[in-house]
């Protein structure tokens, strides 16, 4: 639909100035719509998506749901997630003694069961200086062990303050909530 721009006569133009003044006058007596931070705060911060936090297990709030797959660190476009993993050797459960069979003595002996390695999450380091808040880590997590925080007033003086250890934060948060 190709239209023509409306043309204006001088009289219409002068009238438009008064119409504009009427709009301004109307808005002058309307209530204020701005928020005076910090005396007031806006009320829509619940949906704000801040840096990530670890989600604790339901039955054990001191350990996280994380299964140490490292998908989040791989998915991150800015490489800001680092998982510190400690490997611990666990003694294998003693295998049930098989009854020695005289007929099958030439069969090769069973190989000794491998020692199991248990991987434990020591620290979950987030370098928030590099994060671009894209949310790829939360989307790729297979067990939903990551969530967004809603702290929009986060501030600090040095870069080091924005390198978070999320496991410690999660535990502190639980301790604070259980003691208080």
């Amino acid at each position: 639909m190709i239209k023509k721009t409306p043309k204006q006569s001088t009289l219409q133009g002068i009238k438009s100035l008064f119409v504009g003044l009427r709009v301004t006058g109307h808005n002058f007596v309307m209530p204020q719509i701005t928020t005076h931070y910090p005396r007031q705060e806006v009320d829509n911060l619940v949906t704000y998506r801040g840096h990530i936090e670890l989600v604790p297990k339901e039955d054990d709030p001191m350990t996280s749901k994380c299964i140490l797959c490292g998908q989040c660190a791989k998915a991150c476009p800015s490489n800001c997630i680092e998982l510190v993993i400690r490997k611990e050797e666990v003694e294998p459960p003693p295998a049930a003694e098989a009854q020695p069979d005289a007929d099958k003595e030439e069969a090769p002996p069973k190989p000794a069961p491998k020692k199991k390695v248990k991987r434990i999450l020591e620290a979950f380091i987030l370098d928030y200086n590099l994060c671009s808040l894209c949310g790829q880590c939360v989307q790729t997590c297979p067990v939903d062990s990551l969530e967004f925080s809603t702290n929009s007033y986060l501030a600090g003086f040095t870069r080091e303050e924005f390198v978070f250890e999320l496991l410690e934060r999660m535990r502190k948060k639980y301790k604070a909530s259980s003691s208080g």
């Binding site: 204006q8 219409q12 002068i14 438009s16 100035l17 119409v19 504009g20 709009v23 301004t24």
Partner: peptide, 9 residues
């Protein structure tokens, strides 16, 4: 429209 589009200036 009243405030701006029709405004002579």
């Amino acid at each position: 429209k009243d405030l701006v589009t029709d405004n002579m200036i």
